[in-house]
Design a protein around this nucleic acid. Sequence first.
DNA 1: CTCAAAACAGGATGATTATCCTGTTTATAA
DNA 2: TTATAAACAGGATAATCATCCTGTTTTGAG
Lengths: 219, 219
Amino acid sequence: MAIGKKRTNNPDGMRRRVLDVAEDTFQARGYHASSLGDLMAAAGVTGGALHHHFPTKKALALAVIEERVAAAVRETWIDPVLAAPSAREGVRAVFEAVAEELEQQGYVRGCPLNNLAHELSLADDEFRLALARIFADWRRAIADKIRADQLGGGESAIDPERYAALTVAAYSGAMSMAKTSQDAGVLRECLKGVESFALSPPQGRLKRRRRVLPRPKVR
Amino acid sequence: MAIGKKRTNNPDGMRRRVLDVAEDTFQARGYHASSLGDLMAAAGVTGGALHHHFPTKKALALAVIEERVAAAVRETWIDPVLAAPSAREGVRAVFEAVAEELEQQGYVRGCPLNNLAHELSLADDEFRLALARIFADWRRAIADKIRADQLGGGESAIDPERYAALTVAAYSGAMSMAKTSQDAGVLRECLKGVESFALSPPQGRLKRRRRVLPRPKVR
DNA sequence: CTCAAAACAGGATGATTATCCTGTTTATAA
DNA sequence: TTATAAACAGGATAATCATCCTGTTTTGAG
């Protein structure tokens, strides 16, 4: 350390700075491709400080998952959907907001939850369970919102769990493709698909009705 | 080498054995977590032989992507869907076949394409483009099949590209959740969602109808 | 048969990396 | 003030890893 320099302990701030950098780097390069040396340099943190707050790389990643990834899903998905007038409108708003944000920033880094889920789910059961919990909370929030809409009379009798599962899956898969093609357009495409599901009448009626409809002429 | 032992050159077989092991290990542990030493031991191949066929680890992964992952998507998705009586029936058959296979083997390793796409898309543009091509072929096959169904009069006027995008996204996302929860049930749930999309009326009519609906009362 | 290239063997190497360890400084409770 | 633990510094270390290199064996063309 430079002579004459004073030091001020700031454990919370230092922990936060490390998590900031780790969240960002794990998202951009993945867990295994991010070295602690890189993180230390980017965060301006020494090895001693890093090791003090996070004794192992796994502990750091676990903190990123439980504190940052979970919060990201909450902030971009759960809270907006719960605050929306309806589940359908909330889902549409999130899809469109994310698509627009990605198009403005010009590149797609993917969904932080899915990125880490793919890399770490099979590597370690603690990772897997922490990630699975976030998926479950995400789906439960959407299903709960659908149920609330149905109680209010504003939603058809679709299966809430099914709608939630399809929505999360469609978003996750669309982000996967968007990341691979570096094009957020597929998000909008998949949103339209999910919306048509949300608006379709319940399964039993649908099947019966379809029999009666005349075959559409195409081309 | 042991004295008196003869050696038989078998370049194709050795290349295939390396690719077999690499495909399997990359799928189970990912690219960065798989060391060439592990691969060499598992394949029973020396460093010299490995380096002769694949000068770098990246070259090996590229071969896995272009030869094995592309073939896996073709065999489990493209060919069955194209061979099915209709796109919808083909999609349903694939979802159910995969779900059943996963339930029988008792664990979920995820979709090889999505696994590598998440880990490698941002790492290297060559990786990314090779993976994007596979996604594109996958979607195109489904869209083409829908168009064929429509020409035959057996499919409603849904947008083929939209149906393909939603199907691939729903499958990819469902596999992501199945892998994280180690439970293939979500695949069946998402299949039902996609099926109801396939049966819903075309988008234009839908949108117009929506305007007329009264706003749902929430809380 | 000859010989050049392909196929393979196996160790060397340098770079990277996560973890640990020994100190030093700062804060806090008594 | 003093003692004790927390907070931080910074280098050591041992293991790992991808690549490279030198040498040997096999193969096939001419």
